[in-house]
């Protein structure tokens, strides 16, 4: 954990103006989507952001992709600014960070062959030789478990799992260092999901990729992640290694997420897994901020709280001493 992290998000805030508020419905309100989020991603690791709909995890991913401007705070890549003034252009950014979306059908152009979808980024990045492009497309297809002759086909000719492989191939064709995985297996059937998870882990090892995964599925997160950040309404409530989060979750919201995931083993053992967690004594006079029992108002700035390190690398959000 020394030196400059590959990706650093520092005190990120994203607020969206929402029309229609106030007495006459003409006012503007600010929706606080992400509130002071700080994270680092190291080379070769898989960091997962977990949370439910509306917690701000996808907004965070879009900001990292440069598709959403932060309201304040910064994103830096290898110590250099990646957002705001001094940020690199789209072309440089594309070589650093790529994304795999949840629904590969919606994210592939139905009128382009697989070859065209994969060749376009290479051409844009200055590779002129048709034979080199064909070589790289072919190699990439084989790497994701497809065959070279499938390059001539269109997205609708593939099954859901194969389409997700194409989505992964397109993300990797420029050899980015970071791949954002936005719910990469949520839309897939169990047997296909296993194949894609295995593929993602193989590719990570082969290319030394760093993954920033957005997911609501804690079983997948436990399987794939090195570190996990749990988000609730725009803020991280708990962050730690996968062992911290799954063996010793401390924040009530994390515990609730883990307890309520439908898992055959847990259901068969017919016990409440939360009962097995040992409570960690909180520092004097402190309490959990946003314990997940009530829904905060997204239109007001959150009450002050901070992430407190309770174990090296394991941080939990506590209210500020009052």
């Amino acid at each position: 954990m020394t030196g400059t992290p590959l990706l650093q998000i520092d005190d990120l805030h994203v607020r969206f103006p929402i029309a229609g508020g106030g007495l006459l419905g003409t006012g503007r309100r600010l929706l606080h989507a992400v509130n002071g989020l700080s994270l680092t991603l190291e080379k070769g690791e898989c960091l997962s952001i977990v949370g439910e709909s509306g917690c701000g995890k996808s907004t965070t991913a879009l900001t990292v992709m440069g598709l959403q401007e932060p309201s304040s705070g910064s994103v830096s890549f290898r110590g250099a600014p990646f957002s705001g003034p001094g940020a690199p252009g789209r072309m440089q950014r594309a070589k650093a960070v790529q994304i795999v979306f949840q629904d590969p059908y919606a994210s592939l152009n139905p009128r382009q062959t697989v070859h065209a979808s994969l060749a376009a980024p290479l051409r844009l990045h200055g590779i002129r030789s048709a034979s080199e492009i064909a070589d790289r497309v072919e190699t990439m297809l084989i790497n994701v478990g497809l065959t070279a002759d499938q390059a001539r086909r269109y997205p609708h000719e593939f099954s859901g799992g194969q389409r997700q492989r194409i989505g992964i191939a397109r993300a990797l064709i420029l050899e980015p260092e970071i791949v954002v995985l936005d719910e990469p297996v949520s839309a897939l059937d169990v047997s296909i999901r296993a194949q894609i998870i295995n593929l993602l882990l193989d590719l990570q090892e082969k290319y030394g990729l760093s993954y920033l995964m957005i997911s609501h599925d804690l079983s997948v997160v436990e399987h794939m992640s090195d570190r996990v950040a749990v988000m609730f309404f725009g803020q991280i409530v708990e962050e730690g290694s996968w062992q911290h989060i799954f063996a010793n979750p401390v924040h009530p919201y994390t515990r609730r997420l883990i307890a309520e995931i439908p898992d055959p083993d847990v259901a068969i053992r017919a016990r409440d897994p939360a009962a097995g967690f040992t409570d960690v004594p909180l520092p004097q006079g402190r309490s959990f901020a946003m314990d997940g029992s009530n829904t905060p108002d997204v239109f007001t700035a959150p009450t002050p709280s901070e992430l407190v390190e309770i174990d090296p690398g394991h941080r939990v959000r506590l209210s500020l001493r009052d």
Partner: peptide, 14 residues
């Protein structure tokens, strides 16, 4: 059996 083996299980990695 295949289906169950394909499923990441909570707590299994621990």
């Amino acid at each position: 059996r295949g289906l169950m083996g394909a499923l990441p299980r909570l707590g299994s990695r621990l």
